[in-house]
């Protein structure tokens, strides 16, 4: 096992990890504000990917496809929140969770009915070039794009949440919804904005994912959605930098396990085992704050 080999595997791990991080950002955003594990997130991701598929087929380039997919998903996210989650704002968390599962099934199966269950190839819209760093170590342009997009979006998100007015409103709603309302914050608008941003991120992730792994199908969001969820929890769900760290960590661990001969079967097992260990020793994730329970 040479140094080059380890570096190459590290690059592989970071590249898959940044995809997980990108999806996890949306998860964590929504969770941070209304404490909902939005299981439909992975399916908004699939809608984003399909939107990108159609725009790319129509001949639009990467940037336009991304923008359209993000817009479509933002709208979808707002609609989902308005119709399915808002009526349940004061219900038990598990009820909203089941509703989220219901929305997830609904999107997947509407997808199967309208688009068919077969995977379709995603058109080439990015000229992929591979750069050799040294020796056998290579990195390609898409891997770089994904990493850059993820870091930039995370920074933007961090800025929005901590430096803007809507971000302040989001944090207020997250802290205490009732108090925020009393302070004159429009809670509904704030939550809608959160869903719009979170879902737009899922849309962007969907397009980028489909470019990197060029196929789309209605069930494509299930596994990445689950992995991103794990990544978000690893990092500390609700904490934006945590999503990035959790995603990268998960990606590197998965790749690390697979890079050992004969271990490729245990990739997910090891990933889940590490998740459980981290949760046991640090129950709110790596970046999570330990909230003291009030009596």
């Amino acid at each position: 096992m040479t140094f080059d080999y380890i570096v190459q595997q590290l690059i592989n791990g970071i590249s898959i990890g940044s995809i997980y991080a990108l999806i996890a950002l949306g998860y964590t955003m929504v969770y941070g504000i209304i404490k909902l594990i939005n299981f439909a997130h992975g399916d908004v991701f699939f809608v984003g990917a399909y939107t990108g598929y159609f725009t790319a087929k129509a001949g639009l380039g990467l940037i336009l496809s991304l923008i359209i997919a993000m817009a479509v998903c933002a709208l979808l996210g707002v609609i989902i929140e308005r119709l399915a989650y808002r009526p349940l704002r004061n219900a038990a968390r598990i009820v909203i969770l089941i509703t989220a599962i219901g929305v997830s099934f609904l999107l997947e199966n509407l997808g199967i009915v309208t688009l068919g269950a077969q995977a379709q190839g995603f058109p080439d819209i990015v000229n992929k070039s591979t750069y050799t760093l040294w020796g056998d170590v290579t990195i390609d342009s898409i891997q770089l794009i994904v990493l850059v997009v993820t870091v930039v979006l995370m920074a933007v998100l961090q800025y929005v949440v901590h430096r803007t007015k809507i971000g302040k409103a989001m944090r207020a709603v997250s802290f205490d919804m009732e108090a925020a309302r009393l302070m004159g914050i429009n809670v509904d608008t704030t939550i809608s904005a959160t869903f719009a941003i979170g879902s737009a991120l899922a849309g962007a992730a969907g397009v980028v994912f489909a470019i990197m792994y060029p196929s789309v199908d209605p069930l494509m969001g299930v596994i990445p959605g689950l992995k991103a969820f794990v990544a978000a929890v690893l990092g500390g769900i609700g904490i934006i930098p945590g999503a990035l760290v959790g995603g990268l960590l998960l990606g590197v661990v998965e790749t690390g396990v697979q890079s050992i001969p004969g271990m490729s079967l245990w990739r997910d097992g090891v990933a889940f085992a590490i998740l459980i260990l981290i949760l046991i020793f640090k129950p709110t994730g790596l970046f999570g704050k330990n909230v003291r329970e009030k009596v």
């Binding site: 349940l88 509703t99 099934f105």
Partner: peptide
Amino acid sequence: EWRMVIYSMILILTMIFRPK
């Protein structure tokens, strides 16, 4: 084709109207 669509619609509607 519509099996899971109807199933999930019913799930969502029940949760909204009978959250308990």
